[in-house]
Design a protein around this nucleic acid. Structure first.
Lengths: 124, 124
DNA sequence: ACCAAAATTAGTAATAATTCCTAATTTTTA
DNA sequence: TAAAAATTAGGAATTATTACTAATTTTGGT
């Protein structure tokens, strides 16, 4: 992977804007820094960065994929009301593990918890 | 929810065709039975059925949502090679549970395991 | 059974998220 | 410092899904 200024901007922005943005949300922030970066470039680089493990792609939150600069193993909670995404630390969860395991070689797993966050609990 | 022949066909087909199909895959099978059922009707009914808990919507498998007629609590494994989706029974997994939990009211969670299935292990 | 109200439909248009394409530019290599 | 390889912008194309509308079907009361 060669250096590119655009990729650097994209990664920097994702790291600063640490709210698990979708590509569209991230595009807006990237666009402020560099108006010439195209969506094609954004998507291509997000996928490249995710493939090489520099960032993480999160599916299943809504219709769009979201991206996380935090690659240390952790899970996510999405609030059904406000749709905000929170990190759930691995240490706070009993890690799932398949007991009998002759069928599959499991390389990784994702957990997405859903419910109501503290802020939205107050509002009820 | 009123009765409709189309919804019945859709549900029957999903139950017969028990491979966690995407809407597109299911549409092909439904179309064989009744050529007049439109995609709008398919999507609307899949969402209605999922909302009322009769079927389950699975996100995060690929770009499309998949649907599962099996509503008893279980997880999924997706093979990175052949992209086939397998059921993982709840009893075969250490159930995750958040230890400290004053932040979130968790109503449900999904786990998606990824790796290589037995068939694809043989092919390597 | 009959009829109005409510629900559902087919078909198409519209939208959203993402990928693909191409010629131009940038980065690397040696 | 020039050729090769990688990357880019911008727009077209694709995929998955939802929205719209007029017609049809289902339902519940008589």
């Amino acid at each position: 992977m060669n250096y590119s200024k655009q990729r650097e901007t994209i990664l920097d922005t994702l790291r600063e804007y640490a709210v698990h943005p979708s590509a569209e949300q991230l595009f807006e922030k990237v666009h402020v820094k560099d108006k010439t970066i195209s969506k094609g470039t954004l998507y291509r680089n997000l996928n490249l960065l995710a493939e090489s493990g520099i960032i993480k792609k999160i599916d299943g939150l809504d219709t769009a994929a979201h991206f996380d600069h935090n690659t240390h193993e952790h899970y996510h909670f999405i609030c059904n009301k406000c749709k905000k995404i929170y990190d759930i630390e691995k240490e706070d969860v009993k890690i799932p593990e398949i007991k009998q395991n002759d069928e599959f070689i499991i390389t990784n797993h994702d957990i997405i918890f859903k419910g109501i966050c503290k802020d939205c609990q107050k509002k009820i």
